[in-house]
Simulated scan of single mutants.
Amino acid sequence: MVRHSIRTLLVGLCTLTAASQAATAVALAAPADQLRATYTADRALNPQTLSDLTTAMKGEAFAYASYNLFGTQADREAHPAVGRLFRTTAQTELNEHLHQAATLAGVVGTDAANLRQAINGETYEHRVMYRGFADQARKDGDLNAAKLFTEIAADEGRHRDAFRTALTVVITGRGTIPAPPKADMVPVPAGPPKVKAASTRANLDTAMHGEALAHAKYMLFAARAQQSGNPALARLFEGTAKVELHEHFAGEAVLAGLVRTTKDNLRKAVTGEHTEATGLYPGFAKQASAVGDTAAARYFRDTAADKAKQAAAFQQALNQLH
């Protein structure tokens, strides 16, 4: 899985060159058809700007995954207009905000580079992150979370091995790309958290953000593989992306109590979008401008404006439910 610690991800991002950023713009051409603007960095970005773009991608990926679940809950409660609002906003988060940040950060490279990035992330989560989360959950008595974390750790090991095999095929031109894994679709009903320890809740939040980002990045890697004429690799990335979102993220969302009533979900969305519009993204824009990363600064400002509009739309929907 790609989503490893911020520090680990930033190390990978900081090693990307301007050439890889140019390749990324090509790699994103197909999924970026829906974008209203193109942002490309004309030089290597400041490390802090890369860090802020990583934070942005994690947040946008998490919003995409969460809003789709919130939309499903709105449908259950017979609020179809709210369901459409959540799903439409989710698509904006993924197909516009996250893709633009990924272009600026130079996330997508060659197929081999993308596989190496995936292998590093899967290895970290298989060996370190999820095993640590499982140990902590057992100590705190959250046994269901410990079981889930242990199962996901094993999945990540299998994903790593499949990506390693695929990398050998890409490099040597010999062998067969592994078949994609099958996702066990996990339904996410509304409900309170099913864990008790604050540490487990925090680890679930970290894991969900990582799973959401992994899904988004693997879909970008799949698009790149299709463009490079490797449909088997594209299928491997797409299948793994589905596991990350519909199985891992969903299972963690159940334990975390991510989905509540539609009114609660709208309140959460209003708060999140408002915070990003007034604090997070303007702060990122100011920092990027100070170090001369003008394209990134423009992206952060434009996204902040979008967030304000999204907050207003969610607030209007909430008002109409009262």
Rank of each mutant, 00 (worst) to 15 (best):
A101I: 04
H99L: 14
N120V: 14
D111Y: 00
R116I: 07
I119K: 03
E93H: 04
A118N: 12
V108Y: 01
A102V: 05
A112F: 11
V108C: 09
L98I: 05
H99A: 10
V108R: 07
A105R: 08
E93Q: 13
A113M: 14
G106P: 07
A113I: 08
A113G: 12
T110F: 09
R116F: 04
N95S: 08
A102C: 10
N114Y: 04
N95V: 02
N120M: 15
A105N: 10
H97N: 04
Q91T: 01
R116K: 11
G106K: 08
I119N: 04
T103S: 14
V107A: 15
T89A: 00
L98M: 09
E96D: 05
L98S: 03
T103F: 10
T103Y: 06
A112Q: 13
T103L: 10
V107W: 14
T89I: 03
T110R: 13
A118V: 13
N114A: 04
T92P: 00
E93T: 03
A112N: 08
L98Q: 08
N120E: 12
A113H: 06
A112W: 02
E96I: 03
L94E: 06
G109N: 11
A105Y: 10
A113E: 15
A101G: 15
A105M: 15
L104R: 11
E93N: 03
N114I: 05
A90E: 08
Q117Y: 08
D111G: 07
